[in-house]
Design a protein around this nucleic acid. Structure first.
Lengths: 210, 210
DNA sequence: AATTCTTTGTAACCCTTGTTACTGTACAAC
DNA sequence: GTTGTACAGTAACAAGGGTTACAAAGAATT
């Protein structure tokens, strides 16, 4: 674990801190599609993403969903972080987008490391910064873009995070992520295909324009 | 200044820190409507809100605007905070919603206080937490609500932040904040008036249902 | 091969929101 | 008072996107 930690976080954390993480952190593997955190959960551990990717979603009272953003290696979930510190319930749902390896850190360490390690403080601040910017981008997307543009951006983001220009997803699944209906997605996807920007197959979409 | 600082922040900051703030901070008065930070500005000072209220806006390349949230006494702008730490440009615009009194802190102090004062760390984390939740609420609003609901929520929020159930605003100004057109706002306001939820006058709106 | 289930394509329709255009009214400046 | 300007009301229409309904095509099961 130590070696992997150094690979993923060696550039930002001091050796002392990395060793502490290796000691108190517990490895956890999550297969693609599996839920990591549910809305309303109390968060007792903070995840550091080692490998894979995580999809962060928002849901309202009526069960309407919306994709917020993806997390990659080196990221941590600032929302979770925020919940850890405040001892509040999770406001979001996290689902493994790919097979994912996490290191879970007990929240008691948070306070300790924050005063002890400058690199940890910087990491936490940087995470908040990154997450606020992701949220801003999400707001830009839903506030200023039409559904066809949102869809294209979604496909590009998803191809990138899965490191594969062929996306495995049904129209219905995409519709959930973008908080719209399957019919709308089918309609727009067909239009994108006619325009030569994607190629449609059953259960998968190839993004031609990246 | 010391006395006011104790009133506004005495419950969260140690006396030592409050004295430091009083020493290095500079008071600044901003009248309602005046701009505080523009998109693209480099941020050299961090504001602590003593009195008044600030409106935080997002704008895209085409000049389309959207209100993100309001800040009140005791708040700081986490976006600014985030920019200070990262030495990046502002992603948002801040405008005084009411006459506002700020204490501006040089960003050099940030790093120092973060390692020195636990209460400062907690404040910064709490600010991030609050801002992330505001952003989530903003996303909920634009993603899950219709324009009539958004408008009513906007009027209520604005009445609250201005501590006055009579809102001074033209339909056009509201339209900018909600990123829609004047005609749409006029239409929906008239409907809200017919439903007995507000009362319309020229240049002002009285919110009856709070 | 026949059946069933899942996924996709598409038409028709409706509602919300955005656009254009025109009118009337309050208010300030002259 | 007359004029000009900002603000508000409203009609008519357009566009985007949500809904319902149904058909066709793969894939899985029997």
């Amino acid at each position: 674990m130590l070696q992997e930690l150094k690979e993923a976080y060696g550039f930002i954390f001091e050796d002392d801190l990395i060793e502490e993480i290796a000691q108190v952190g517990s490895l956890q593997y999550v297969v693609a599609g599996e839920k990591i955190i549910e809305i309303g959960d109390y968060v007792k551990m903070m995840p550091l993403l080692m490998e894979g990717a995580i999809k962060v979603m928002r849901e309202d009272k009526d069960g309407d969903e919306l994709l917020l953003y993806f997390l990659e290696r080196g990221d941590t979930c600032a929302m979770t972080l925020s919940c850890c510190l405040g001892q509040t319930k999770s406001e979001i749902r996290a689902v493994a987008e790919r097979d994912t390896k996490l290191i879970m850190i007990p929240i008691e360490k948070m306070e300790e490391w924050t005063s002890k390690y400058k690199s940890w403080r910087d990491f936490v601040f940087e995470s908040y910064h990154a997450r606020l910017n992701e949220m801003l981008e999400t707001i830009d997307t839903i506030a200023f873009m039409n559904m066809d543009q949102r869809l294209m951006k979604y496909l590009q983001d998803k191809a990138k995070i899965n490191q594969n220009e062929v996306i495995a997803a049904t129209h219905q699944q995409i519709a959930y992520d973008l908080h719209t209906s399957r019919v709308v997605i089918s309609r727009l996807l067909k239009k994108l295909e006619i325009d030569g920007r994607i190629k449609l197959q059953r259960n998968s979409i190839e993004v031609l324009e990246l």
